[in-house]
């Protein structure tokens, strides 16, 4: 296996795009090292991107946040300004593994593994985050729902890799939330996850995105559930409607972690709780 650790993004793009064999990016390494060890994958080229300075930064611009592909989960959760603006994304990131894993694992890695149960992803989709992809023909931006095509699968060409995640600035009177269900208290994979981004005007919901994780081949943006809340105030009626739609929109599988019926039910409950929690955050801030 050839190992490269380029110092600049340009070098990295050249090395990666010019190599024609089986290749992988090494960022946090918390998944690829396990795959190497168990011979799930035998890449001919492994390119470490952690030495590239611009991929190790969390930057704030006028309209968006830019998180590099080499930024560890711990560096995201430690960033007070970011976690205050996007508490839900931060919650998701903070749930990825133990202290040791948090210090290495990256949000881009969590995303590009394309696990249906990835904790980092639902809140990103709810926040309308995008990825910046670099390749032979320059940069392009892609919405996360278009990036992920199925379990473990991304819509990317062989010369491309993800350099950054772009997250818009949070709106006024808005907040987000991510919660998941696991049978233990820590260190587990989501049986169901739910990310919500919510805006409130005059006590009514003026914008909302409800996203379910671990209940389909990829994250599910429930447009119907989101629309059902639009213009409504938060009450028992609107919440039970939301719950019912999310139960229906979840398309889970049966496995040892949970049955279809259980997962559907939990999807509804989590959606309700996540909306309530995001709403509470808005009220506390205003």
């Amino acid at each position: 296996m050839r190992y490269e650790a380029p110092q600049t993004l340009n070098q990295a793009v050249n090395v990666f795009s010019e190599f024609n064999g089986l290749k992988r990016i090494l960022a946090g390494g918390t998944d690829i090292l396990v795959q190497l060890r168990t011979d799930v994958i035998q890449p001919e080229l492994l390119m470490n991107i952690k030495d590239i300075e611009e991929l190790g930064k969390i930057e704030l611009f006028d309209n968006f946040w830019k998180i590099g592909a080499g930024v560890s989960a711990a560096n995201i959760t430690r960033n007070k300004e970011f976690s205050k603006e996007w508490p839900g994304i931060t919650e998701g990131v903070g749930l990825i593994g133990s202290t040791q894993i948090q210090n290495r694992a990256t949000l881009v890695g969590n995303l590009s593994n394309a696990s249906p149960a990835a904790d980092g992803v639902p809140a990103l989709v709810a926040a309308n985050a995008m990825v910046e992809i670099v390749g032979r023909n320059g940069n392009r931006k892609l919405e996360i729902l278009s990036l992920i095509s199925g379990p473990g699968k991304l819509n990317m060409k062989s010369d491309e890799f993800i350099s950054h995640i772009l997250i818009p600035r949070q709106n006024k009177n808005s907040s987000d939330c991510y919660i998941r269900f696991i049978p233990r208290t820590e260190m587990d994979i989501a049986v169901v996850g739910c990310g919500v981004n919510l805006s409130v005007e005059n006590n009514n919901i003026s914008a909302v995105k409800v996203v379910l994780g671990a209940v389909g081949p990829k994250v599910i943006f429930s447009e119907e559930a989101s629309n059902s809340l639009l213009g409504a105030s938060l009450n028992a009626d609107s919440l039970s409607k939301l719950q019912e739609i999310c139960e229906r929109d979840a398309k889970p599988i049966d496995d040892k972690r949970g049955t279809i019926d259980f997962r559907r039910k939990v999807a509804g409950v989590l959606a309700k709780r996540a909306v309530e929690k995001a709403y509470k955050r808005i009220m506390e801030d205003s």
Binding site: G29, L33, N48, Q100, R104
Partner: peptide, 8 residues
């Protein structure tokens, strides 16, 4: 602190 089994 990291797991040295997960670093090359």
């Amino acid at each position: 602190v990291i797991c040295s089994c997960l670093a090359l």
